[in-house]
């Protein structure tokens, strides 16, 4: 199946006084993956709900797989698969019963629905739990079933709203593997996420949303260049030791910054790290923590807007 395109032109959505999505434009080429990156309340879910016809637009235009969202919502619904933020499956039914139900609703015959359910259960690592009620599933299993449920019938455009939020690292990795598989299949994907790492890993292009507006757009590489890439982070609690460390590091390296008890040195290679550790040892500074830190969404926002957001911390690469 070939992917369909998504065109969004100055889309606007308000809730009373609050503008949730403000003149957002972007386009997703067929067969590519777009990551909508933003914190809570950035307008990601509203965006997905507008594009999947769950919410009417208040302005602008959106075309999904050739169907105008406002004029031909039925056409849009026949072209999309949606996996929302909540695992929207029936928790009393078993995994298999869920998939058969969705298949039958999408007009598969009894046998086809059963066969498709079987395939999906196997492909998503749910075969063993197929006949257990969903209630007994782990968070990761629920999410996988949820994704499987939206793929019972394959669609040219797939929306994934925060597919890994709330999952543990193992669940997240498993989800990434499955989503990568979808991309390889040629579907067009629009994925929302709070994690820069996730967007980086899965998306061809990233649109950064902040308070309903697009504040940056580009490939993961372009975006990371803007943020400045990974850094070497040094925590020193004792102020006078910290001052000494900053002074010593600045003498030998470029771009050393200090904020709070955190000193950052650009460059995330082992050489930089070794150098930092050596300098600290020479000065007799005992750091509380030294490590490599990949840029988080927080850093993206800081780089783009100059203010810190309350974003979930990402698992850093600590030594």
């Amino acid at each position: 199946m070939h992917g369909g395109s998504v065109e969004v032109d100055r889309l606007r959505k308000t809730f009373g006084e609050k503008t949730a999505v403000d003149e957002v434009s972007f386009s997703v080429a067929p067969g590519t993956v777009l990551g909508l990156l933003g914190g809570n309340g950035a307008g990601k879910t509203t965006m997905v709900n507008c594009l999947s016809t769950l919410l009417p637009l208040d302005g602008g235009r959106a075309v999904v797989a050739g169907h105008d969202v406002a004029e031909d919502p039925a056409g849009v619904r026949a072209s999309i698969a949606l996996t929302g933020q909540f695992a929207a499956v029936d928790d009393v039914l078993t995994g298999r019963q869920n998939l058969v139900l969705f298949g039958r609703l999408l007009k598969l015959g009894r046998k086809e629905a059963a066969a498709r359910a079987e395939e999906l259960l196997a492909g998503f690592g749910l075969a063993d739990a197929a006949d257990q009620p969903v209630k007994s599933y782990s968070g990761g299993m629920r999410r996988r079933l949820d994704l499987a449920a939206s793929l019972v019938v394959r669609r040219p455009v797939i929306f994934l709203d925060e597919p890994t939020t709330g999952l543990d690292p193992v669940g997240r990795r498993e989800m990434w593997r499955i989503v990568s598989g979808l991309c390889d299949d040629g579907a067009t994907l629009l994925l929302t996420t709070q994690y820069l790492e996730e967007a980086d890993r899965l998306a061809d292009r990233i649109v950064v949303l902040d308070q309903g507006r697009v504040i940056a757009e580009g490939t993961p590489r372009e975006l990371k260049d803007q943020v400045g890439g990974a850094v070497c982070a040094v925590h020193v609690d004792v102020p006078e030791q910290r001052e000494r460390a900053v002074r010593a590091l600045r003498e030998r390296m470029d771009g050393v910054t200090e904020s709070g008890d955190l000193i950052t040195v650009p460059g995330a290679d082992a050489g930089t790290l070794a150098e930092v550790v050596r300098v600290l040892a020479e000065e007799g500074v005992e750091p509380d923590d030294v490590g490599l830190r990949r840029p988080t969404l927080d850093d993206v926002f800081f780089a783009l807007t100059g203010r810190r957001e309350d974003c979930e911390e990402q698992e850093g690469m600590r030594l």
Binding site: M1, A78, L106, K107, L108, G109, E112, A115, R116, E119, L120, A122, G123, L151, V153, R154, G181, D184, D185
Partner: peptide
């Protein structure tokens, strides 16, 4: 997994999308 996907596509092409396109 790849194979099962492709098969799924066939199922669907024959019937579900079929009834439309």
């Amino acid at each position: 997994m790849k194979e099962s996907r492709a098969e799924g596509g066939r199922v669907e092409g024959g019937r579900v999308e079929g009834s439309r396109a």
